[in-house]
Design a protein around this nucleic acid. Structure first.
Lengths: 341, 341
DNA sequence: CACCGATCCCAAAGCGCTTTGGGTTGGCGC
DNA sequence: GCGCCAACCCAAAGCGCTTTGGGATCGGTG
C-alpha cells in the first residue's frame, strides 16, 4: 500500500492525503480523520526511503564506533550510552545508525557518510588527545556532538564530566585516610579523559607534597584483566600500594580479584576507589555501595547527548553547546584508613 | 555533487556514469576508469537515500532491542554481539539500524518497520519461551534470524548454542568433584536459553539421583548484583551450597564477591562454574582461566548470525538455516573437590 | 452585485538514483 | 555493399514521497 493507492481509495489527491497525515493545517479536520482512519485500516506507513529522499532529511543519527585493533575499550561503556541515546532518538523519531569502523578507516567512513547523506548528524565518543575527527566533521559541515572533549574544547559542542575534579577529589579522599602509596589504574592515555583523570590525581598529590610513584601508575584498555594483572604485579612488587584509584568499575573488579587471591580485605587491608559509569549490570548500590566511587550515569549522558545533537541538527546556526557535569562521590565499603606500616 | 553534475562534467549520460560506478559490463574499461577517477576527484558518493528508493533495497538490517522495564538483561551481551554483527555488515555493505523499544511496543515497532521498508531484515535476540515476534515476522514476510530459538524451533532460521548439553556437562563436572549441594543462578526463565540451561542442570542431577534443591535455584536479570545477593543469601542460609553454576560471568563475579566477603576461597572452599560469552572486557583467560566455564564467543555468534541473515535476504526462497553450536568446557581455578562435610 | 479572503483541495514538479528499451557505431563475414 | 552482432552509450520512465503554485468554492462586505 502506498500513498497513491491510499489516495485513490479515498478519492483524494496524494497532496491532501500527505498533508492530512503530516498534520498540515490546509485540510479539514473531518477529512483528516477520514484519512487517518483509512491509513490505519490499510496498515499504511509512508515509505521511509521515499520520504527521506523527498525531504532531504535522513532522520537518522550515526554513531561511529572505532574498533581499535587490540581491545574495544569503549565496549562496556558504549552499550549503556547507546541505550540512553536510543531512547531519545526513538522519542524524537530519529533512527540510530551504528557503524563499526576499524581504526584508521575512520576518516574514509566519515567522508563516505557525509557524501552519501545517510545521516543528519553524528555522535563522537571517546575523543583522543589529538583527534582528527573533530576537524574533519567541521570541514564536512556535518552536525556532531562530542561525548567528552579534547584540545581547546572550543568551537564545537560537547558534553563531558569534570574528570580532573572527580579524580582530584577521589585522590584527596584517599590522602585524607592516610594513604600515601596510591596506585592509579587508568584508561589508555591516548584518550583525553584518561589524561585528565591522571592530571586530577597528580594535582591532588602535588598539593599535599606527595610524589607520584611511576611504578604505581598504569594505563590500558579498561578490562577486568588489566585491573587484575596490574594490581597483582603492584601488590607483589616492592613498595606495594595501600590504595588503588581505578578509572572504571570493571578495572576495580579486577583489582578486587587480585586482592582476594592475596587474602587482602578491601576497605581494611587495601582501599579501592573507582569511577562508576553506573552500568546497568554492574550496579554498585546493590546491597549497599560496594566500591567507593565517583559516579556519573553514562546512560543519562547518552540521553542528554542525543537531545543536544538533535537540537544541533534542528538549529544548525546556533553557537556550540557545551555541558560539563560534576560527578558524585559515593562512599562505599572499599575504602578505609591506611593500615599502619 | 550529484550524478547529474558528475555526468555533465564527463560529457556522459547519467546512465553510463551510473553503470560505470556500479560495475556493469556495458561500459568500456577506459570510460569506467575515467568515471571512477572523476568521482574520486569530486569526492562523489551516490546519495544513499536516492539509491535506496530506486533499488527498493534498504541495504540496512535492523536490530530491535527490547527495553524490559526493570533491567536490560541483554545489555552486556548485546554489545559484543553487535560488534561481531557490525563487522560483517560493514564488509557486506549493509547498514545497521538499532531500535530500542520499550517492551510491549515491540509488535507496533515491527509492523512499522515492515510497512515503511526501512530495513531488509531483522535480527531477533534472546527469544522468550512464548515469543510473539517470530510469528509476527513470518506474517509480515520480513527476513529474520533468531539468535537462540524457542518453541518447536522449526520453520524459521536460527543460530543457538547447545545450552542443555553445556549445562549438563558443567553439572556433571561438579558432581564428579563430589558436589551435591549445587546452586543454579540462572537468567530470567522467561527466556528460552535459561529454561534449557535449567533443564541441562536438572537432567544431570537426575541421572545421578541427586534431588535439585529449590532454595538453591534462582533466576533473574544477569547482573553482578543478582549474583552477589543470591549467593550471599544462599551461603548464609541453611544447607549452603558447595558449588555454584552461573549463567553468566557477570553473575559469577557477584558470586565471587559474596565468597570473598565470607572468606571463602574459590576452588577450595567453594566451586563456581559459569557460562562465558567471552565478553571482550571480561576475558576469562588473562592470567590463566579464572573461572571454570562453558564458553562460546558471543562476538563470533554475532558475526555468523549476520552472515546467515544476509544470505537469507539475498536468497529469500531457501529453506530455513539452523545452526547449533557446541560449547567448550574450560577448566579454571574456580572449581575443586567438594570439601569434606 | 462584485469582490475578497478563507478554506479546502489538486496537478505536477521535483528529490537523485537505477533501469528499461532502445539507438549508434564499427568491424566482420559473405 | 549489405546485413548483423558486439560494444557503447543515451533518453526517459520510474521509485514513493513532499511541496510549490495555483484553482475552486463559499460566506461575508461595501
Amino acid at each position: 500500500m502506498n500513498l497513491k493507492e491510499l489516495a485513490a481509495t479515498l478519492n483524494l489527491s496524494q497532496t491532501t492525503v500527505s498533508r492530512a497525515l503530516n498534520g498540515y493545517p490546509e485540510v479539514r479536520e473531518e477529512t483528516r480523520a477520514r484519512v487517518l482512519a483509512a491509513a490505519k485500516a490499510a496498515n499504511y506507513a509512508p515509505n521511509s526511503r521515499a520520504r527521506r529522499l523527498a525531504t532531504g532529511r535522513a532522520m537518522t543519527i550515526g554513531h561511529v564506533i572505532p574498533l581499535t585493533g587490540r581491545a574495544e575499550m569503549v565496549n562496556p561503556i558504549f552499550a549503556d550510552f547507546l541505550i540512553g541515546a536510543g531512547e531519545v532518538y526513538a522519542r524524537e523519531g530519529y533512527d540510530l545508525l551504528l557503524s563499526m569502523v576499524t581504526d584508521g578507516d575512520s576518516e574514509a567512513a566519515f567522508r563516505q557518510i557525509a557524501a552519501n547523506g545517510s545521516v543528519d548528524g553524528v555522535m563522537v565518543q571517546a575523543p583522543q588527545i589529538t583527534d582528527p575527527r573533530i576537524a574533519l566533521l567541521q570541514e564536512l559541515d556535518l552536525p556532531f556532538l562530542v561525548h567528552g572533549r579534547t584540545g581547546d574544547a572550543e568551537g564545537y559542542s560537547w558534553l563531558d564530566i569534570a574528570n580532573i575534579r572527580a579524580f582530584r577529589r577521589a585522590t584527596e579522599f584517599l590522602l585524607d585516610l592516610g594513604h600515601r602509596r596510591i596506585a592509579l589504574l587508568n584508561g589508555q592515555e591516548c584518550f583525553d579523559f584518561a589524561r585528565r583523570r591522571r592530571q586530577g590525581f597528580e594535582d591532588a598529590l602535588e598539593a599535599r607534597g606527595v610524589a607520584p610513584l611511576p611504578h604505581l601508575m598504569a594505563n590500558d584498555a579498561m578490562t577486568e584483566g588489566f585491573g587484575y594483572l596490574s594490581a597483582s604485579a603492584m601488590l607483589d612488587g616492592p613498595e606495594p600500594p595501600t590504595a588503588f584509584l581505578a578509572s572504571s568499575v570493571i578495572i576495580a573488579i579486577g583489582i578486587r580479584r587480585a586482592c582476594g587471591e592475596r587474602g587482602l580485605r578491601m576497605g581494611r587491608d587495601i582501599s579501592v576507589i573507582c569511577h562508576d559509569d553506573e552500568l546497568s549490570y554492574l550496579n554498585n548500590d546493590v546491597g549497599g555501595p560496594a566500591f567507593t566511587a565517583t559516579r556519573s550515569s553514562i546512560r543519562a549522558a547518552g540521553r542528554r547527548c542525543a537531545e543536544i545533537l538533535i537540537d544541533l541538527i534542528r538549529n544548525p546556526e546556533q553557537p556550540p553547546i557545551q555541558e560539563l557535569w560534576e560527578t558524585d562521590l559515593t562512599v562505599g565499603r572499599s575504602t578505609g584508613p591506611c593500615p599502619a606500616a
